[in-house]
Structures are given as C-alpha cells and as structure tokens.
C-alpha cells in the first residue's frame, strides 16, 4: 500500500523534506519546527527547521544517532515540550501554541504514549492500567474495543495481575493497550524495546505492527535500533536536527545502509553514530 522507495534526499528541496503524503490528510505534521536550548554562543539547535508528514494508518520509525534530535522531535509533535519556532499539528489541531489544559486534553483524547520503561502504575492491575486514560477522561470503557485490544495483544490471562507480576514484554503490551484504549489519532512510542530482551522486543514490535495493520492505528516510534525500525512501514532518518533521509518498506539492511550513508555524508567524524550502528 505504500509505494515510496528509498532515494537519496536533497535537503535543499522542500518537497523532499516534507515527505511523500499518501492518501488522506497526514495524522501528524511538522513545519519548520525548531527547538533551541540555551542562548547566544552556547545555543544548541536540537531541531533546526524540520518539515515532515506522518500518514494515517502507518507505522513510522524515526531513527537517528544519539543527539540527532529524534526524541526532541517526538516531544514537540506530542505536545510534551514547547517549540522555539515553527508549527506541529496532530490531525487538524496545531499543537504548538496550545495551553497546558488543551495539551492535557489532546494527550488524553487524541495521543497515546508507550514508554521505554513501561511506566505502569504499580498499585493497579493490568486492566485498571489499560482503562485509566478513558476513566480520567470521565468516559465509559468501550468493552468491545477493550476485548479487541486484549485479544490482539494476547493479554487475556493477565488482566488481573499487577505490573510486578508481569514480564517486561507483558508490561509493555499492557502499556500499548493503554496507549490505544482511547482510540487516539496517533501513538508515540519512545524506544519501546529499549528495556526488553530481543525476543520480547520482537514480540512487542510485531504487536505494534499488528495494531497498525489490523486495528488501523497510526504509530510513530523513536528508536536507534535498525532491527526495530525494520518493523515499520517507513523510516524517517534524522541527523543534526534535520531530516536526513526517508526509507520506505525498510529492512534491517536498508536501514543500516541509510545510517551508514548518514555517517559518511552528514557526520564525517562519525563519533556520535556508534549507537545507531551497533545493532
């Protein structure tokens, strides 16, 4: 369903930087998004004018070496942090410029999160953790949807367990269910396999992919693991605060190749990309 193929990127061409939209409006967009830490000489441009679109119903990975700005990009897109300049949109809503209350509501109703360290509430059962966002919103839980999630994620037997009684992979699956329970426009996953062994990691990634394919969700995942990124429909490469490449239908090999290209082209000294290549 996605026909985009990998090609070298020309950063000077705005059409390239904006990515290639598929059918329908993009779920998430960034326009000239900038984030600067510090001022004057000490200023660090974590994001230096990023334009990117993320299509609905796709599983997109954002990849880049440490310090490339991939996490900052996610924070800004999700409204977790404030931008220095530019615009970010979730659906038709501009996230940049929203007040805290509106941002809270946006996160509650239209955005889901999956964290590296799961972040389940230890005193609640798996089921209570999953339904918490809906309850916070003061709505009733859609039991049909909950059943679908539980079935898809294989959590049936674990619903009454507390996080401490679950394995890391199971905890992360509970976290995915929690992120999807409110049927959000988009789910942001931040290194979701970072705390898992490779088998649990693979399991979680295939669940994420199934969520996109079978439940028509939109997921944006930040990772520095090429194997993880290969589960996505598309990989957006980022380096030095700019979009540096775009890989459609990635494989671990094509992702590694893209990263290598980044290293040789963008970072001749290559000192910061060791983590990205390690996997």
């Amino acid at each position: 369903m996605d026909t985009t193929v990998y090609r070298p990127l020309d950063p000077a061409d705005p059409a390239d930087a904006a990515g290639t939209p598929a059918a329908g409006p993009p779920a998430v967009r960034a326009r000239s998004l900038r984030k600067t830490y510090g001022t004057g000489e000490a200023a660090v441009h974590a994001l230096d004018g990023v334009d990117v679109d993320f299509e609905q119903g796709h599983f997109t990975a954002i990849m880049g070496p440490s310090g490339s700005g991939k996490s900052t990009l996610m924070h800004l897109l999700a409204g977790l942090d404030t931008a220095t300049g530019g615009h970010a949109f979730v659906g038709g809503t501009e996230v940049t410029g929203l007040g805290d209350d509106d941002l809270t509501r946006l996160r509650r109703d239209r955005v889901g999160f999956v964290f590296q360290s799961f972040n389940l509430l230890p005193m609640f059962t798996a089921k209570q953790n999953i339904t918490l966002p809906v309850e916070l919103a003061g709505r009733t839980v859609d039991t049909a949807w909950l059943d679908t999630l539980v079935r898809t994620l294989g959590l049936g037997a674990r619903l009454e367990h507390r996080p401490s009684e679950l394995s890391g992979g199971q905890q992360q699956r509970v976290a995915i269910a929690r992120a999807l329970i409110a049927q959000p426009d988009v789910v942001f996953a931040d290194e979701p396999t970072g705390n898992l062994d490779s088998r649990s990691g693979a399991e979680v990634l295939s669940f994420l992919r199934r969520s996109v394919r079978e439940l028509s969700r939109t997921i944006i995942m930040v990772t520095h693991d090429p194997t993880a990124a290969a589960y996505a429909d598309r990989v957006v490469l980022i380096a030095d605060g700019r979009i540096a490449g775009d890989i459609a239908d990635p494989t671990p090999e094509s992702v590694l190749a893209g990263l290598d290209a980044l290293r040789t082209l963008e970072l001749p000294d290559g000192d910061r990309s060791d983590k990205a290549v390690r996997a």
């Binding site: 805290d100 509501r105 916070l136």
Partner: peptide, 10 residues
C-alpha cells in the same frame, strides 16, 4: 509524569 502524559491535568 506518566499520568500527565496520559491525560491528567495539572
């Protein structure tokens, strides 16, 4: 922070 991220207001 997690609660804030999943939609608990300040």
């Amino acid at each position: 922070a997690t609660l804030r991220a999943i939609g608990l207001s300040r």
